Simulated assay, not measured.
Amino acid sequence: MFLSCGSLHQRGPETDGTVFRIHTKAEGFMDADIPLELVFHLPVNYPSCLPGISINSEQLTRAQCVTVKEKLLEQAESLLSEPMVHELVLWIQQNLRHILSQPETGSGSEKCTFSTSTTMDDGLWITLLHLDHMRAKTKYVKIVEKWASDLRLTGRLMFMGKIILILLQGDRNNLKVPKS
């Protein structure tokens, strides 16, 4: 199991929290291991409230990811007021096969990705921006950091050869999606 952790840098102590990204495997159909990426957003009043949960797996459909997320949240409700991330990871490792065998999770062919597993009702959204170029890298990075901070977003600026990407995560109201 791989775990990465980062703080959400948002204004005000009432909106601070922590994000855990856990890469693990769980047994699916016919004893095949299915790689899962589980993202837990722990608000400042955790464990007194439910964490935000996102599911990502290239081997599961969108419907299956949504069902797994719903089942994890149901399990989390039974663990309120006690630390639960580790328990939820163990639970999904032991129960993924049973969740996937339910009829409502067997349909659909679209692969589940991080952004599609987040629904309109979730407060936490993710967007990926592609930049054409960047003239003054140091100055531009500071501008992007200030912009993200002002909008209460967290994210990463990624340079991959000539490709420049900005990955942002935050409240749906702070992420504007352009109309096509």
Rank of each mutant, 00 (worst) to 15 (best):
M1K: 12
F2D: 11
F2G: 06
S4L: 01
S4K: 15
C5Y: 09
S7C: 03
H9L: 12
Q10R: 15
R11A: 04
R11I: 00
P13W: 12
T15K: 15
T15V: 00
G17C: 07
V19F: 14
F20L: 15
I22R: 10
I22F: 09
H23E: 05
T24K: 04
A26P: 14
A26M: 04
G28W: 00
M30S: 15
M30N: 15
D31Q: 14
D31H: 10
D33M: 08
P35V: 01
L36E: 08
L36D: 07
E37C: 15
E37D: 12
E37F: 02
F40E: 09
F40S: 07
H41T: 09
L42M: 09
P43H: 06
S48I: 00
C49D: 06
L50K: 15
G52A: 12
I53K: 09
I53C: 03
I55V: 15
E58T: 13
E58I: 09
L60M: 11
T61Y: 07
T61L: 02
A63R: 13
A63N: 13
A63F: 06
C65Y: 08
T67N: 11
T67Y: 09
T67A: 13
E70V: 08
L72C: 08
L73S: 03
Q75Y: 05
Q75A: 09
A76P: 01
A76Q: 11
L80K: 11
L80Q: 13
S81M: 08
E82H: 10
E82D: 11
H86A: 14
L88E: 05
L88A: 10
L88G: 10
V89R: 08
L90T: 12
I92G: 04
L96F: 12
S101Y: 10
P103T: 06
E104H: 14
E104M: 01
T105F: 02
T105R: 03
G106Y: 08
C112R: 05
T113S: 12
T116L: 09
T118C: 02
M120F: 11
D121V: 11
D122Y: 03
W125Q: 10
L129D: 01
L129M: 13
H130Y: 02
H130R: 14
D132V: 03
D132K: 12
D132Q: 07
H133L: 00
H133Q: 07
A136L: 13
K139L: 03
Y140H: 14
Y140I: 11
E145N: 11
W147G: 02
A148C: 11
A148F: 01
S149F: 15
L153D: 04
G155S: 04
M160W: 01
G161K: 06
I163W: 05
I164H: 09
L165F: 15
L168P: 08
Q169E: 07
Q169K: 14
R172E: 06
N174R: 09
N174L: 00
K179M: 00
S180K: 00
